[in-house]
């Protein structure tokens, strides 16, 4: 991911990752979709997801930073915060 990315770009990229890792139909991935209830992403999947996001963002992610993530929209916000912090630090 480049340093400057709109929420929309992050969302599209997340869609791709969810499809690649979990075979989730991109049409089901909306900002309101609940990761566990709607997309059946369980706690073990979350670890794999975070690992993949680490690779993409090139940034360390503490599972803590994803603790309050419930929906796809939450995840987009969390990723955006991460990237912004990285740009700020750099």
């Amino acid at each position: 991911m480049g340093p400057v990315q709109s929420p929309q770009e992050i969302f599209e990229q997340l869609r791709g990752v969810l499809n690649e890792l979990f075979e989730i139909d991109p049409a089901r991935v909306t900002l309101d979709a609940h990761l566990y209830n709607d997309l059946e992403i369980d706690s073990i999947d979350t670890i794999d997801l975070i690992l993949r996001l680490k690779e993409i963002t090139g940034r360390k992610i503490q599972p803590d930073q994803f603790r309050h993530v419930r929906t796809v929209g939450d995840a987009v916000n969390a990723i955006q915060t991460l990237i912004q912090n990285k740009s700020a630090a750099a």
């Binding site: 890792l21 979990f22 075979e23 999947d45 794999d48």
Partner: peptide
């Protein structure tokens, strides 16, 4: 395939 997918 990635393990999450294999598990599915």
């Amino acid at each position: 395939e990635p393990q999450p997918l294999a598990a599915r």
